[in-house]
């Protein structure tokens, strides 16, 4: 079993075999989660703190459930309301929490790179639950697991990531992961929502939706991040839906068996037509949510194995 990371800060540091390892372990947790008795002791005795500096319902509850199913003691901290308002720096917050001896720290932060910074200052395993516009590794991993289960493989697929690429950490993590696993990735969206230099990252950029969807195996829609828009990226939501919203006519350009994904929460009628989202033959959006719990269980399980191995090694060192 090859997984050597101390933290899960992004997809970028992962080796393809490590990605495969996480997905393999996650597969077994999918089975567990479908049983009546959904419990394992992988994290028994461990403390997991979810530290969200940015609002989240879905990701936070997914992490919480994952930890609880593995037997960890889980604590949620909503950071918008607390110490940062009192002027405490991120590092001081991290050190305060570190003193409580957590084993797993799940962090979401509105600034790119903030989770990396925090990970330098604590001695537990840190999982990035989304940092600014940088990475959201567990989302990319759950997307990969969903694709692998739906398509039977995670290589040599043609995948279109569509919509608000500029504000999306999901897009970045997916782009890196799918690239590492040797897929062809297309980015599709209005040029105001595609950051510069993306075409130099080994993907193709399309400004036309129908062209971009032509013959792809997977259509990944992104949420139009209204809360991150500091003005004037698109003329209106209805024009956006007309030109870039996924409806049956646009989807018809993809392969007949192409699957439709969305990281949620969806804006129906903005980036995706409700009938596509609900089409059980095409949409795997509900599976994504299911895979999310399994992937997070797998990631935490693997990190804790490394944590325990490290602690055991240190202990040996002291005894010798």
């Amino acid at each position: 079993m090859a997984f050597r990371q101390k933290h899960l800060l992004g997809i970028e540091p992962l080796h393809p075999t490590e990605i495969t390892t996480i997905l393999d372990v996650a597969d077994s947790y999918v089975d567990l989660n479908r049983q009546a008795h959904k419990h394992s002791d992988a994290l028994a005795g461990m403390t997991q703190i979810n530290m969200f500096f940015e609002n989240s319902t879905r990701t936070q509850s997914s992490f919480e459930l994952a930890g609880k199913r593995l037997g960890a003691d889980v604590m949620n901290m909503s950071m918008q309301a607390s110490s940062i308002k009192k002027g405490e720096t991120l590092i001081d917050t991290a050190l305060t929490l570190n003193a409580m001896h957590p084993d797993l720290l799940v962090v979401r932060h509105p600034h790119s790179g903030a989770v990396d910074l925090l990970a330098e200052k604590v001695n537990c395993a840190v999982l990035n639950a989304g940092d600014g516009k940088h990475e959201h590794p567990t989302q990319a991993l759950l997307d990969a697991l969903t694709i692998r289960r739906a398509k039977g493989r995670l290589h040599r697929l043609s995948i279109a990531i569509c919509g608000d690429i500029a504000h999306s950490r999901v897009a970045r993590s997916n782009l890196i992961l799918l690239g590492k696993m040797e897929n062809r990735v297309r980015l599709v969206g209005p040029p105001t929502l595609i950051p510069t230099g993306m075409n130099e990252l080994g993907c193709e950029v399309y400004e036309d939706m129908e062209e971009g969807l032509k013959d792809v195996d997977v259509v990944m829609m992104l949420r139009l991040q209204k809360e991150r828009m500091d003005g004037g990226f698109i003329p209106s939501e209805r024009e956006y839906f007309h030109r870039y919203g996924l409806d049956a006519a646009k989807l018809a350009h993809a392969k007949p068996d192409a699957i439709v994904m969305h990281p949620g929460p969806m804006n129906r009628g903005v980036e995706i037509d409700g009938s596509i989202a609900d089409d059980i033959n095409r949409s795997v959006i509900q599976e994504q949510v299911e895979m999310g719990v399994a992937v997070r269980m797998a990631a935490m399980d693997l990190l804790v194995r490394n944590l325990r191995a490290e602690k055991a090694a240190n202990h040996d060192g002291v005894m010798a």
Binding site: S112, G132, K133, R169, R172, P195, T196, G197
Partner: peptide, 20 residues
């Protein structure tokens, strides 16, 4: 305003607000 990096491949990958 608000830029922390020069726009391009690197800033896009790092997700940093960038200026042309």
């Amino acid at each position: 305003k608000g830029a922390a990096a020069t726009s391009g491949k690197f800033a896009s990958l790092r997700g940093l607000p960038a200026v042309s």
